[in-house]
């Protein structure tokens, strides 16, 4: 289990699941969760490459930054979703189309 490929497969699987979630879910929260998955897939890749590529802790540092950013992004995104809910009484992203009209 210390093969780089294994990590990559997991990351790819996570990314695909996240992407699928982003693309298919109408629920804002679920979309956000998909995004988290995508980010975490990236984190895994960072750490994995860092570890197997002999790049000291660079990958780890990036992973940490991404986690922080993800947290911030989640906070902002959730705030938006809550606002959407407050305004439109729904969290379905398809219905949040006021800008388009």
């Amino acid at each position: 289990m210390d093969q780089l490929n294994n990590y990559l497969f997991i990351a790819a699987a996570l990314f695909s699941i996240g992407l699928f979630g982003v693309m298919t879910r109408r629920n804002g929260i679920a979309v956000l969760m998909g995004v988290e998955l995508i980010l975490n897939a990236a984190n895994i890749n960072f750490v994995a490459f860092s570890h197997f590529g002999g790049m000291n802790l660079d990958g780890h540092i990036f992973a940490l930054i991404v986690i922080v950013l993800a947290a911030a992004e989640a906070a902002v995104a959730l705030a938006i979703v809550i606002n959407i809910y407050n305004n439109l009484n729904t969290i379905n992203v398809d219905e949040a189309s006021r800008m388009k009209e």
């Binding site: 992407l19 982003v22 693309m23 298919t24 979309v31 992203v93 398809d94 189309s97 800008m99 388009k100």
Partner: peptide, 12 residues
């Protein structure tokens, strides 16, 4: 469509 998801789909 104005729907991001569609765009993402196109991008993908």
């Amino acid at each position: 469509t104005g729907k991001l998801q569609n765009y993402v789909l196109y991008v993908t």
